[in-house]
């Protein structure tokens, strides 16, 4: 160890201010080539994302497409930035030296002059139903499209065109091919992205409203009692359906079985 520190290891003695991995670039563990240290969003990049979404009011999809950052990551950045700003307003102390130290050891993405790419954004999630091999006899003269392929995997499987996270990007390319100017096509893309975002927000609002309508709130003691109206018939004919209300009778409850996720998976 001492020998190694004196010879090849001396470069790891002090932090260099940039990633300094034992392996080559992006491989912290030389023996494990499968472990790749992917770049993280730099502080400035996150600030820029927040500014675009909150200050300039751009759609999350637009920002995601511009910087090639996953939609969910854009949303997460905005949420966390909001928390950070709230803490700043409250005068809470930040752990800036710690953040700087950690960030300096990781590869980062910077958005120089308003452009950049962080990660692939239009990847289709592989549904487990689509991982089987199916031999489906079909007529040679028949058009077999992606929709047919989806139907072959299952009635509830959507075709790839519908499962893609950014269908607007496909339309953008089609517009460009059809001879629209780049400016025009981009404008149309932004509009469509905003439209889809507004639609999603509306869907969420409706769902919330429907939930609220099924709820009766009674302030009975120091607690508020929230009564949700349910239907006993959801339990099915034998009373064992999973959609039914309450703990089920005569059915094992596997919440403590080995392999079950026991830590909370969402904030509540």
């Amino acid at each position: 160890m001492r020998e190694w520190m004196a010879s090849t290891g001396h470069v790891f003695r002090e932090p260099t201010g940039q990633p300094n991995y034992l392996g080559d670039e992006n491989h912290p563990f030389p023996a494990n080539r499968n472990f790749v240290s992917d770049p993280v969003l730099s502080e400035e990049a996150r600030e820029e994302i927040w500014r675009r979404v909150v200050k300039q009011g751009e759609a999350i999809k637009t920002v995601s497409a511009n910087f090639s950052v996953d939609m969910r990551r854009v949303a997460a950045v905005v949420r966390l930035k909001e928390v950070e700003k709230a803490w700043e307003r409250e005068g809470k102390k930040m752990a800036t030296p710690y953040a700087k130290a950690v960030m300096s050891m990781l590869p980062q993405t910077y958005f120089r002059d308003g452009t950049g790419a962080h990660e692939p954004i239009n990847e289709i999630h592989v549904h487990s139903h689509t991982m089987q091999q199916i031999f489906l006899p079909t007529s040679e003269s028949r058009q077999f499209t992606r929709e047919d392929a989806a139907k072959a995997f299952g009635d509830h499987i959507l075709p790839a065109d519908k499962r893609v996270p950014h269908p607007e990007l496909i339309t953008l390319e089609k517009d460009l091919l059809a001879g629209k100017s780049e400016h025009e096509a981009k404008k149309a893309f932004e509009n469509r992205a905003m439209e889809s975002e507004v639609k999603a927000a509306e869907r969420l609002r409706k769902k919330k409203k429907a939930e609220e309508e099924r709820m009766t709130r009674v302030k009975a003691s120091r607690f508020e009692f929230r009564f949700e109206d349910v239907n006993v018939d959801d339990a099915g004919k034998d009373g064992r359906s999973r959609r039914g209300t309450g703990w089920r009778y005569g059915v094992p409850f596997y919440d403590r079985r080995r392999g079950e996720v026991k830590i909370p998976t969402k904030v509540e």
Binding site: F223, E224, E228, G246
Partner: peptide
């Protein structure tokens, strides 16, 4: 409630009225 700092508490009841 998830994003509620007021400290108010509630109890959840489901009932087929």
């Amino acid at each position: 409630d998830t994003y509620d700092d007021s400290g108010k508490l509630h109890k959840d009841i489901k009932l087929d009225v």
